[in-house]
Amino acid sequence: MAEKQLHELTPEMMEFLQGEKVIFLSTQDHEEGAPTITCISWLLAVTPTKIRFAIDPRSRVIENIAANPRLSLAFIGLESSFAVSGSGSSELNQLDGVTIRMTEVNVDVVGVREIMFYGSKIITEPEFEKTYNLDLANKFDAAVYAALGKA
């Protein structure tokens, strides 16, 4: 299968990337220069060319993006695996309506590639379970997604 690169998210990807998904974020470590991967879930596709996610401001990801804004987001879904490349910028302000401090990162999408190996498809998407107070988790998630959804 020849690799095809898109320059924006498809409508199906937009719908899929509306939160509560396992997303792999790859940045370049600001000290070592090596690639590093972080797993995130607070993410929204805002437009076909913009993705927004929230992360703890103490995360190494923030320093990595400040040093080199190029990043990749990978996800498993829609019967395949995809890599989204882009450039990130962060807002260090607390997200409105969120009780703990979170950093908003905006990603300008420059490329989208299907990265599934040839001759296969995904039959089960990754799932996760929250391991802390479920009522608190639901309240916090709702606040984070409401804040991320604001333009």
Rank of each mutant, 00 (worst) to 15 (best):
I23A: 05
L17G: 03
V22D: 06
Q28P: 00
P57E: 09
G19L: 07
C39W: 02
G77P: 02
E20Q: 13
I37E: 10
K50F: 00
A67N: 12
F75H: 10
A45G: 08
L78T: 04
L17D: 04
S81L: 10
K50C: 12
E31V: 11
E63C: 02
L73W: 07
E32W: 05
T10G: 09
L44D: 11
P48C: 03
R52T: 14
G33A: 02
E8M: 11
S80I: 05
L44K: 13
I76V: 15
S80P: 06
P69Q: 11
V84I: 15
L6C: 02
A67T: 04
L78E: 11
L44G: 09
E32K: 14
I62L: 15
C39R: 11
R70K: 15
G33Q: 00
E63T: 08
S81W: 02
I23L: 11
P69W: 04
F82G: 05
V22C: 11
E31G: 03
S80H: 10
F53V: 09
V61P: 00
G19V: 08
E15V: 13
R58Y: 02
A45L: 07
L17W: 04
V84Y: 07
K4G: 00
T10D: 06
L73T: 00
E20T: 03
E31W: 10
E15D: 14
F75E: 10
V22R: 07
L78W: 01
H7N: 15
E32P: 00
L73P: 07
G33C: 01
R70W: 11
S41C: 10
I23F: 06
E63Q: 13
L73S: 01
D56G: 01
Q18A: 11
F16Q: 03
S26H: 05
H30P: 01
I55E: 07
V84E: 04
P35H: 13
